[in-house]
Design a protein around this nucleic acid. Structure first.
Lengths: 360, 360
DNA sequence: ATGAAAGCGCTAACAA
DNA sequence: TTGTTAGCGCTTTCAT
């Protein structure tokens, strides 16, 4: 046998049953903690399982019942916010028999379809879709096929549960903070969105709406200034470049996500501008990156961990009881102020060398 | 039916066969591009598949043949280096029928065993294990069960392929660079390792060895100074604290990974020290974080993307031909110098303009 | 080149 | 409580 691979046939439920002197049904019941197995039987079967090193085949189980697999689809493995969500999911699913498998869809609708199909083909017991771009109709089709929790997307559905942050309020918190500091030219970098449904459901779109609304509310409607790119580091970089090139340079930039703020800081550094001396910068997500001392980014905490915990809990719930009504969980965001925001006009810049400060 | 879930039975190969007026065998052959299906038959079957929206059940396939699933286990989803590797894997597997599913094992040996078992239970066609802690023996057992590529771990095996970076050389590049700049007190933060086998196989251990060796080679043997923590941001933070507390403070810190360097910068910022004015910092991996302008970290590029591409290629190879001898791919690292390293004594700090300083 | 039929390992309905 | 048995949807001999 080449490389000595697979010399031994896998131990099956039949082997266990024989070894324990019981039926395969009995073994199956013990495996699933199902009703109808006496303590003695359980003991015998478990002993046999251990002795033989038996592990149930997920493929075979999938043919009839569950696969004990939960799929998590995320748009971008580089965005540290999703790691927080995953931590929450894993924390909730840790003690259970479920295995979490992740697929990255790269912010691309066809790729998302590919991933969700793959999860359905593999008979996963449930899926958690993080900030999916997929159409409403398709999401509902998925949810009718497999228990589904949609994370980070607004809009109720009768067939899937959702967990989201109150992005409208969150964006308002940032604008209020910057306005209080005395900023007027508060610009925003958004993830470009044209699809009418997504404009009402995606966090990026809601944050942009929240930004506009808050600007109006603070009497800053005339200063609304938006760059439309993507929620990636590169998108933030491009967005900042655009904003800096405009006739009226902003004194503060509200990036729609921490990863976007990272790109903004990249561009500002390249342009020789200091933060917050020349320009204040705020993000959204409160990722570990924002807490990173050399950056110290003001941001909005949307409790990624809690989002993950809630998503996993809802999913387990739904797997157990498919008939309960769809649930929407909305978490309240919280502003975290750090050193990347300050009053405009170089208040903080004075502390730094001013050799290259541009004329404002 | 609750929520209207699963009202329609899934389309099976039998439905397709009936619709196309052929046998299920024929459909199966077309699905697998197997020998023995005429062009007309292929056309008929494909038409039926499209019309019915048929998708093969991975569970059923797994019972007999392949699952078209590749598992990737990684130790820490927060480390951006692994995202580079994944990109490489996906780039290589993109056009194929294989689906990549990721599981995070959180730098923990029992958790790794859990994950690899889960992958085997799910009949995955192949697995890529990134920097596994798992014992040699167990790795070989896994590899005898399923085609396996081990990434980022040295040490040959006859049953699994490996892809790794020349960590010994890479560490030497960093030390040489710092020594050339005039540093003597070059400290190193390593991932604590006690297992004798892992001491000879894990990249962290090899880097530590490379560091010691290079220090000796540059006549700096007396200045070897190591903090043993973990390859995480927090580990870097703790390591830097330890080093700063020692009687002779280093003038340069070589962190074993970029993510560790991030923790170092965190601690240095907290301590009010400037980089590279007070202390030079270097990392390893050349992640996107290192290129981030406000940080601008000197580091070693080990070409994560290429590592991923090679791993995926080797795996496909082995799935196709189990009998070929095990292969070791070793990639050459390359030093990338950026602004986080400079001559000791603050010489370079004066030359830097305020605008280039990390955001502080 | 094509199809009939066995069976992969498990779960669930049913019988005892 | 326990065991018998019929499939789940595929792939794979083996006939034709």
């Amino acid at each position: 046998m080449p490389n000595g691979r697979a010399p031994a046939r896998r131990v099956t439920i039949i082997d266990v049953a024989k070894h324990a002197g019981v039926s395969t049904t009995a073994v199956s019941k013990v495996l699933r903690n199902a009703y109808g197995a006496s303590p003695e039987m359980q003991a015998k079967v478990r002993a046999a399982i251990d002795e033989l090193g038996y592990r149930p085949s997920a493929a075979a189980r999938g043919m009839r019942g569950q696969t004990y697999t939960i799929g998590v689809m995320l748009p971008d493995i580089r965005n540290p916010f999703f790691a927080d969500v995953l931590d929450g999911v894993n924390a909730q699913l840790g003690g259970t028999d479920y295995q979490v498998l992740i697929a990255s869809a790269c912010n691309d609708e066809p790729a998302e379809a590919h991933v969700t199909d793959a999860m359905i083909d593999r008979n996963m017991d449930g899926v958690i879709l993080i900030a999916p771009l997929t159409s409403r109709k398709r999401l509902e089709r998925i949810a009718r096929t497999v228990p589904t929790v949609v994370v980070g997307r607004h809009g109720n559905s009768a067939v899937y549960d959702t967990v989201a942050d109150d992005d409208f309020t969150g964006a308002g918190l940032v604008v209020a903070h910057l306005a209080e500091l005395g900023h007027q030219r508060i610009a925003h970098i958004e993830h470009d969105e044209t699809d009418p449904v997504r404009l009402t459901e995606m966090p990026n779109a809601i944050r942009a709406v929240g930004y506009r609304h808050a600007m109006q509310a603070h009497g800053l409607g005339d200063f609304v200034d938006i760059a439309s790119t993507t929620y990636t580091q590169h998108g933030g970089y491009l967005g900042a470049k655009q904003l800096l090139a405009r006739p009226q340079r902003p004194t503060a930039i509200f990036a729609g996500a921490d990863i976007v703020a990272m790109g903004v800081l990249d561009a500002l550094t390249e342009a020789g501008l200091s933060v917050p001396g020349d320009i204040s910068v705020a993000g959204y997500d409160n990722t570990t990156f924002a807490a990173f001392a050399p950056i110290s980014l003001t941001t909005v905490d949307q409790a990624g961990h809690q989002i993950g915990v809630n998503a996993a809990r809802l999913l387990l719930d739904r797997i157990a009881d498919d008939s309960r009504p769809a649930t929407q969980v909305k978490l309240s965001p919280r502003l975290v102020t750090r050193r990347s925001t300050a009053a405009p006009g170089g208040g903080a810049a004075a502390a730094r060398t001013a050799s290259q400060d541009p004329v404002l």
